[in-house]
Every structure is written in structure tokens, then in C-alpha cells.
């Protein structure tokens, strides 16, 4: 119990605790802070500060590269929303089967197969996916990106959904069926609403993972099709301009927003 802890054994009293914490926080957040601050720099330089300006944000939307970035952003969001939706649906069904399917043979193997992609180096998945599309003669384009994203987003969506579902006792569905609900009604009226916080978390996680994916996207995208990460990479190759910092800051904003939503969804319990 927290209250029973004496100050002596509190980890905060360990020597070097504060310094270690500060170093970790610095390493993690200093680059992000720098990028965010310099995105408001009035200068063309990315290292010298010449005063506050929204110039580079305007440049992203109306500057010479704006068409390229807008098209890439549109692709990114369409792919992220579609892939996250598909992955979440599949993950929800998979979680239902895994958690409610009883002890079927190969259950452990199935769980391994679903979560293995999280452990496989992304470059391997990228190469494998590319070879697969080539082998079946699938023309690379936005559809290949969508399929690849849907596939690798499934484990990300699956984890929060199955975690939520494991916390739901099966007596609720039994009670529903005892009260004249058939299997479908027990699922839609009882299980699905109870799973909803997990499903929303899963969707948001899949959305973010898809939105910022670079390696797999870069392998399976067709010529001329760009997503935001590949477009940013393309323009960084020609030298870093402050407009990249502005885009990065906006992406950071989207991520923070999504994570915040996810946090409040998991906090807000529809059972209270």
C-alpha cells in the first residue's frame, strides 16, 4: 500500500534518482521541443533564431511545395482512417474468437501469429510485403499501401481490444441469453458496448501507427504516390527547410490529440 511506505524505501529518496529522471526527460523531449520552437522561426535557417513568425506554417499551405504536401496529407489520412477501420474490425472479431472461443487447439499459436508482427523487424515485413505484391503481380499504388497498412495495424488494434475483453466476464452474455437474447443480440447489446473503450483505443493506436509509417509505405507505394512521411523524407533529402519543422509540429499535434482522446476514452467508463 502506498501509504504504508516509509520515506526510507521510497524510490524518490535513492541517490541520483532526480538526475537520472532529468536526463531521460531531456533525451526524450529536447529534440521535439527544438523542432516545435524552430517551426515558429522567422529565419530561413534551421539553427539561428530570428524572431517569432507563422511564416513556415503559411508556407506549408500556400508555398511552392504546398500541393505536394496537401496531396500526401490527403493520402495519409484516407489510408490511416480506412486501414484503422478495417484493422479494428478484424481485430475485434479475432479478439472475440480468441477470448470467447474457449480452449481450442492452436490457441496459443493463434495468439502468437496475431502479435508476432509487432516483434518482426519492420524492414523484413516491408521486403516480404513488396515481394508478395510483386509475386502476385499487384500494381503498386495507393491500394497496396492500404492493404499493407491494414495488415500490420491488426496487432496494434488487437492488443487493447483483447485486454479489455479479458476483463469482461462471460456471465454477462450468459445473463443476456438467459433473458431471451440470441447470440447476435447478446453480442451487439451487451458485449460490443462493454468492449467499446478497447475498440476505440485500438482504432486510435492503429490510426497513429498507420499515419506515421515510413518503411513499409516506402517499399510498397507506387511511383508518384506519396504519404506524409515519404513526402517529408523526399524533401529532407534536398536539405532541411523550416517548413518540415512546421509539418512535423502539426503531426505531433495530431498524435498528442489522438493519445489524449485515447486516454480519456479508456478513463471514461460507460459502466459508471
Amino acid at each position: 500500500m502506498a501509504t504504508a511506505k516509509t520515506a526510507k524505501f521510497d524510490i524518490k529518496s535513492y541517490r541520483g534518482f532526480k538526475a537520472m529522471t532529468l536526463i531521460c526527460l531531456f533525451v526524450l523531449y529536447a529534440p521535439l521541443v527544438v523542432v516545435t520552437i524552430y517551426s515558429f522561426n522567422a529565419s530561413n535557417s534551421i539553427t539561428t533564431w530570428e524572431g517569432f513568425s507563422l511564416h513556415w506554417y503559411a508556407d506549408v499551405f500556400i508555398g511552392p511545395d504546398s500541393d505536394k504536401f496537401k496531396a500526401a496529407a490527403f493520402n495519409s489520412f484516407v489510408i490511416a482512417i480506412t486501414a484503422a477501420t478495417l484493422a479494428t474490425s478484424i481485430a475485434t472479431l479475432a479478439a472475440t474468437a480468441m477470448v470467447r472461443g474457449g480452449k481450442f487447439r492452436l490457441r496459443t499459436v493463434s495468439f502468437g501469429l496475431i502479435s508476432l508482427p509487432l516483434m518482426v523487424p519492420e524492414i523484413v515485413t516491408a521486403v516480404a510485403t513488396l515481394i508478395f505484391f510483386n509475386a502476385i503481380g499487384f500494381d503498386r499504388g495507393i491500394l497496396t499501401i492500404l492493404l499493407a497498412h491494414t495488415a500490420f495495424c491488426i496487432p496494434f488494434a488487437y492488443l487493447p481490444i483483447s485486454a479489455r475483453m479479458q476483463g469482461i466476464e462471460d456471465s454477462y452474455e450468459q445473463a443476456a441469453m438467459d433473458l431471451y437474447a440470441n447470440r447476435r443480440q447478446a453480442f451487439t447489446r451487451i458485449l460490443l458496448p462493454l468492449m467499446m473503450p478497447g475498440i476505440i483505443s485500438g482504432f486510435i493506436l492503429a490510426f497513429i501507427v498507420s499515419l506515421d509509417d515510413f518503411i513499409i509505405t516506402n517499399f510498397v507505394k507506387g511511383a508518384g504516390v506519396e504519404t506524409l512521411p515519404t513526402a517529408i523524407f523526399g524533401s529532407v533529402k534536398q536539405g532541411i527547410k523550416p517548413n518540415i519543422m512546421a509539418i512535423s509540429t502539426m503531426l505531433l499535434g495530431v498524435s498528442v490529440l489522438m493519445v489524449t482522446i485515447s486516454y480519456f476514452v479508456s478513463k471514461s467508463d460507460n459502466t459508471k
Binding site: E169, S171, Y172, Q174, A175, A176, M177, D178, L179, Y180, A181, N182, I190, P193, L194, N270, T271
Partner: peptide, 18 residues
């Protein structure tokens, strides 16, 4: 179960929390 005209009071009640 849903076609049997019997109802159950469960040990943990199993009230629908939502």
C-alpha cells in the same frame, strides 16, 4: 438458453454494467 422459459439469478448478479 434463450428459448427456455426459465431465468437465473447469478452468483455475481451479472448485472449489465453499461
Amino acid at each position: 438458453p434463450h428459448q427456455r422459459p426459465v431465468n437465473t439469478v447469478f452468483q455475481n448478479y451479472a448485472l449489465f454494467p453499461h
